[in-house]
């Protein structure tokens, strides 16, 4: 991955509190796994930036190198890689995702 791609990814991650690299976008997810994470974030009413990796092969492959994680989607909160679909779903189900947003002072709707 060249520096240009790495810098572009880094600046995207730094530009918003919550960034989701996904296939498609929040209105039109193009993969069930991306859709599942969009649903979790929408349920908690969290503001997030959706990055459609299908628009750029460089970003689609670069993000996997960047995080050393082999699949999409990938969720970042305040610059930190949180996980892919499985981990975000598990955190959502256990309440850890909501707790994370609270700890990181990110506005969301806490629903029990």
């Amino acid at each position: 991955m060249n520096d240009h791609v790495s810098e572009s990814i880094q600046s995207t991650i730094d530009s918003s509190d919550v960034v989701l690299f996904m296939k498609g976008n929040r209105e039109m997810p193009q993969c069930g796994f991306s859709n599942a994470v969009v649903n979790a974030l929408s349920y908690l009413e969290v503001k997030f930036e959706d990055v459609d990796v299908l628009q750029s092969e460089e970003i689609r492959e670069g993000i996997k190198v960047f995080s050393d994680w082999p699949t999409i989607p990938q969720l970042y909160v305040k610059g930190e890689f949180i996980g892919g679909c499985d981990i975000v779903k598990e955190m959502f189900e256990t309440g850890e995702l909501s707790q994370l947003f609270t700890e990181k002072e990110i506005a969301h709707t806490k629903k029990d």
Binding site: K64, D68, W69, P70, T71, F81, G83, G84, D86, I87, E90
Partner: peptide, 19 residues
């Protein structure tokens, strides 16, 4: 962490994940 645990499994699958 969960990420580390899952990475151990992905590594075990020798890069077949994703592809």
């Amino acid at each position: 962490t969960r990420i580390q645990q899952h990475k151990m499994v992905y590594d075990a699958l020798e890069g077949r994940m994703g592809g």
